[in-house]
Design a protein around this nucleic acid. Structure first.
Lengths: 146, 146
DNA sequence: AAAAATTATATCGCAAACGATTTAATTGAT
DNA sequence: ATCAATTAAATCGTTTGCGATATAATTTTT
């Protein structure tokens, strides 16, 4: 039995598990909003800066367009965003928030930070632990994204 | 614009991105072995302890059986594992490694630790950083898993 | 300016995740 | 012992994630 191949020694498995569990913790609030976690990510990108081409959203989320395109189209059907062709570059599809999409920011603000705070209240990590964790994760992300 | 809803302030987005990127870093080696990352996780569980029911594997990986069952069946088709009914509890399906599945441990040992070491060599984190990271992730995982 | 290379998005197919439900076997309660 | 509750797997449907490929528009080369 090689130590390197034990599940308990895998940082990757921890990231995978923590990521899934924390996404699951978001789910009750997101269900109340009628969206999924990746859809919430797209909304956060657009709340910060509206009217972005698919590619910029994908780049910001470190995803490929073959993931983002269908996601965007589902969100269009939900009435959260609208699409129009770019006028400078006709290949681009510019994604914009609808009124519904914009209005969701306030609802998310009321639901999600308190909801997640409650969910993580039992976690022994302090503010500075989360800050260091964020830095460590950024190191990994920056090393691995090409 | 609420600070709490900025992408850059989300620990969850960092976990999601780091998890996907590190899984992607495994992919070239796993492709050489002919398996996926979740299949590799199942193999690690079985390399540590062979002949486990589906439920125990799911529990170890913090997954539901509706994820693990199809995964197991794909691995059976690949010839990595075999399934038999439990003799004590006939509801259980016991998962066992085949010779191919057992033999893959050595190949994985030769490919994956050096491959991932190379991929993360440019990452500024030190051994103690990874150890602390592991602890912090364990805190989150233990808080959120019911 | 025409041809070649690049880029933006979309399409296709497959493997995960996961909520919800189903089936069969086991355990617990009366 | 019988009936109800629980448990182990499986099935179904939807959304992601991603490799591979396709299409159309733009940029670069020649």
């Amino acid at each position: 039995m090689h130590e390197e191949l034990k599940l308990d020694n895998q940082i990757c498995f921890r990231l995978y598990s923590a990521s899934r569990l924390i996404t699951q913790a978001y789910t009750p609030m997101l269900t109340e909003l009628g969206i999924t976690y990746p859809q919430y990510l797209v909304l956060m990108v657009l709340w910060e800066k509206d009217n972005q081409p698919v590619n910029d959203i994908a780049h910001r989320l470190i995803l490929e367009t073959n993931t983002v395109t269908p996601l965007i189209h589902r969100m269009e059907k939900l009435g959260l965003i609208s699409l129009r062709q770019g006028d400078k570059d006709k290949r681009q599809h510019i994604v914009s928030l609808t009124q519904t999409g914009k209005a969701m920011e306030e609802k998310a603000f009321e639901l999600i930070p308190p909801g997640m705070g409650g969910r993580l209240a039992a976690c022994p990590l302090q503010l500075e632990d989360y800050q260091r964790l964020a830095q460590e994760l950024d190191s990994i992300i920056n090393t691995l994204k090409k």
